[in-house]
Amino acid sequence: MRMPTDDAVYEVDDVFLGPPRGTLPWRARYQAYAVGGVLLLLMLITEKKLGIIGFWPAVYGLIAVIGTTRYVMRHVTHEHTVKALIQTFWHEVRAHRPAARPATTTQMSLTSVRRTPGH
């Protein structure tokens, strides 16, 4: 019996080549533009908050955003989406770390469990 999977159909390389009659010299996925846009926005807000305003800061910021976007997109695949990347980051931040000294108390408690009637 054949054991096919649908994996291949979901591996479409969804690239944006540029506007009509304006092919860009690079190939990037739509997601990369979205990620880059968000990062650019964050960078501009940060610069504004820090009071770094001007042409060159914007240029350097843009270069940094492009670099960061490329780095991020290297970890974004059909299997591992941007959403999953953020989720993983969040999980890693929230993960329980080992106690400095040997644990004496319950770390993963089930105190949320209700007492059932009759017991």
Partner: peptide, 16 residues
């Protein structure tokens, strides 16, 4: 019961 389940969790630690 909560005490029953706590029996399994007591002393167990998961850590990254």
């Amino acid at each position: 019961e909560p005490t029953d389940l706590a029996e399994w969790t007591s002393g167990i630690e998961w850590a990254a």
